[in-house]
Amino acid sequence: MILTACLLASGCAGGDEPEPAGDQGKEAVPHGYVEGAQEAAEQQSRLVMADAATGTVRVLDLVTGDTATLGAVGPVTDVTTDGRFAYLATGTGTEIVDSGAWTVDHGDHVHYYRAKIRRAGRAEGPGPVRAHSDPAVTALSFGDGSVRLFDREALEDARPGAGRALPDATAPVIPYGEHLVVPGTGAAHDRVEIRDRDGKPVSSPDETCPEPRGTALTRRGAVLGCADGALLISENSGAFTARKIPYGTSVAPAERAVDFRHRAGSTTLAARAGRNAVWILDVTGLRWKRIETGPVVAVNTAGEGTPLLALGADGHLSAHDPATGKRTVRTPLLPPASRGPAPVIEVDTSRAYVNDPAGRKVYEIDFNDRLRRARTFSLDFTPSHMVETGR
């Protein structure tokens, strides 16, 4: 499916409908209009970065190259994003940053927005935090197993409030299909429930997901990492189905996929398989592939037709053919891995971004051109944690 950005100049017209009589003479509100935001013709990618020790927070605009300073939030232990907001876990709760960049996908077209970068409040709950959102609700799943639901409109107004507790939820929750996908339920904590947005159970697939950990939201549906593989939850006209994607072999607990990495919406997922290998999960083809990479600290992929990117413990960045597993290029990038948060690889359609805490830099990598360094961003603080927004 080809996605077409709709510009404010033309909107996304759906036909020549007559104006209501009472609206004659008034200026029409463009389709996709968001108060306080500017619509753009391309994705507005930004990097939210935090210093683990000092809690200094910076937001790097990848379109303009400008960096915004948001001050310190206290020592940061973990950062995650739902595509627009970054959630920074500290010792006293979770600080929320509105990156001011996001994408609205209508299926046959998308809208790209940019707005003011700002602090958006805080949520009570320990890290690590996992965040998933839809247009109505944001689900924050905390390190103690608790889950709270936040009204999306209130969050966008920087008034998140305390949120609403979701009972009997012990694993990351995914808002999907105007419902909530809630894993880890039942006596054995291996059932998956579909609940309405009020938390009321609607259905439960026959397929189970023992020991749910990793989560991802793709164009094919919501993906849950399980002890025996993955579970794909799909929705069609309000009906939910589940398909198990088994590993196909016995996998030791330390080598299971528990943290999926991918480009937003992509149906190709990457995850570390212990210390020395990587899993590729093809959600469309319903199959896993294990790639022997050697010691690895970070992985990611932009999806079908693009390489698997793996950052080794020795600081070298490698590209692998996801079909064959063969390494196609390898280049030195960072110092060898040391103590502290591991670097990450963030990806969009044509570039990857790798943070270098020791060198106080971020590298933009053209993964279609033999891992060429397209840009280097020098910083005045240590980018221990990093997430990309604007998706």
Rank of each mutant, 00 (worst) to 15 (best):
P295I: 02
P295V: 03
P295C: 04
P295A: 13
V296F: 05
V297F: 01
V297C: 12
A298G: 04
V299R: 00
V299Y: 03
V299M: 00
A302E: 07
A302W: 05
G303P: 08
G303M: 11
E304L: 13
E304K: 12
E304T: 14
T306H: 14
T306G: 08
P307E: 07
P307S: 11
L309E: 00
L309N: 03
L309C: 09
A310N: 08
L311W: 06
A313T: 15
A313Q: 15
A313G: 15
G315A: 09
L317A: 08
S318G: 13
A319T: 01
H320K: 01
D321F: 04
D321K: 03
P322N: 07
P322H: 05
G325T: 05
G325R: 01
R327F: 00
R327C: 01
R327H: 01
R327N: 08
T328W: 01
V329Q: 10
V329L: 03
T331A: 11
L333R: 10
L334S: 06
L334H: 07
S338K: 13
R339C: 05
G340K: 10
P341K: 02
P341D: 02
P341W: 06
V344S: 15
I345M: 01
D348F: 08
D348G: 10
T349H: 14
S350V: 12
R351A: 12
R351M: 12
A352N: 03
A352R: 04
Y353C: 11
N355I: 05
N355D: 10
N355G: 09
D356C: 12
G359I: 10
G359R: 09
K361E: 15
V362F: 07
Y363C: 01
Y363L: 13
E364D: 08
I365D: 01
I365A: 07
I365W: 01
I365E: 01
D366K: 00
